[in-house]
């Protein structure tokens, strides 16, 4: 038996479907509402899964999210103002595990995990029901020590590739990948618009020479059309800012509608 994450991708592959990965900031509190942090996040995850999300990325809010655009920055600020911390985010994972087996991966910045103790974070994260972690400010060159920990603990440490990942770096990154590979669709940060997905398509094709680990494309996927275009190049798509924008505005219904539309569009495109 594989991990929840591996099993999910295997199941989707058997069904000929693409993965829809939804990012939700831990401690997100919709506009106008007081910070009822953890419970609101648990409910958002429950609803996102029901609307069609295959995998949830649980964002650990950080004061200086270097790889994130304005929407996730704003969500992080609001979550931190509401008192979100790393231990509380682990509590959210534990709550979700009471009713769901949806694969859950944390996405956060290295300083917070380092300060907590990376190994302690992995141990407690796994016990809380997390399946892996994405750390966008640690490139492959700096992750050997972390990989040693995650491998020993049976936890996934996601690798990144971008249109600029080439040659030996691409080969090395792919060979050590686990869970899924986060394929950054374009130059920039999260939440950018109007992307030509053919560039990352070429990158995905290159990655395929070195690994069978699933490829998921993220950054800038805001509509069903974009999701379908991106998914055609890979095994799944990651949607963050578009969903978070609606949640931040207090439009939970619209956020869930978007997830539902993407789910339908992805499934329809795969049947063709």
């Amino acid at each position: 038996m594989g991990t929840r994450l591996e099993n999910k991708f295997a199941e989707l592959k058997r069904q000929g479907r693409k993965a829809l990965i939804i990012y939700i900031t831990a401690g997100i509190s919709p506009a106008g509402k007081s910070a009822d942090g953890p419970q609101a996040t648990v409910e958002a995850v429950r609803a996102a899964e029901a609307a069609g999300a295959d995998i949830i990325e649980l964002g650990l809010p950080f004061s200086d999210p270097m790889a994130d655009g304005p929407v996730i920055q704003a969500a992080s600020v609001r979550a931190l103002q509401g008192g979100m911390t790393l231990p509380k985010a682990l509590g959210i994972a534990r709550e979700i595990r009471k009713f769901s087996e949806v694969p859950l991966v944390a996405m956060g910045y290295i300083n917070q995990m380092h300060h907590y103790g990376f190994e302690k974070f992995v141990q407690e994260g796994k016990a809380a029901g997390l399946d892996g972690v994405i750390v966008p400010d640690v490139p492959h060159e700096e992750s050997a020590g972390m990989r040693e920990v995650t491998q020993r603990q049976g936890f996934h440490l996601m690798e990144f590739i971008t249109p600029g990942t080439t040659g030996e770096r691409m080969a090395r990154t792919c060979r050590e990948a686990t869970g899924f590979i986060y394929c950054v669709s374009n130059y920039g940060v999260t939440g950018v618009k109007e992307i030509d997905y053919s560039a990352i398509g070429k990158v995905c094709a290159e990655a395929r020479k070195f690994t069978q680990v699933p490829l998921a494309i993220g950054f800038g996927i805001g509509t069903s059309e974009a999701a379908v275009q991106a998914a055609a190049q890979a095994d799944g798509v990651i949607v963050g800012s578009a969903v978070m924008q609606r949640m931040l505005e207090g439009k939970m219904g619209e956020a869930l509608d978007l997830i539902g539309e993407m789910r339908q569009a992805l499934d329809k495109s795969c049947i063709r």
Binding site: D137, P139, E142, F160, R169
Partner: peptide, 8 residues
């Protein structure tokens, strides 16, 4: 070098 892959 703790930076996003895109910067590497």
């Amino acid at each position: 070098q703790y930076v996003p892959e895109i910067v590497m």
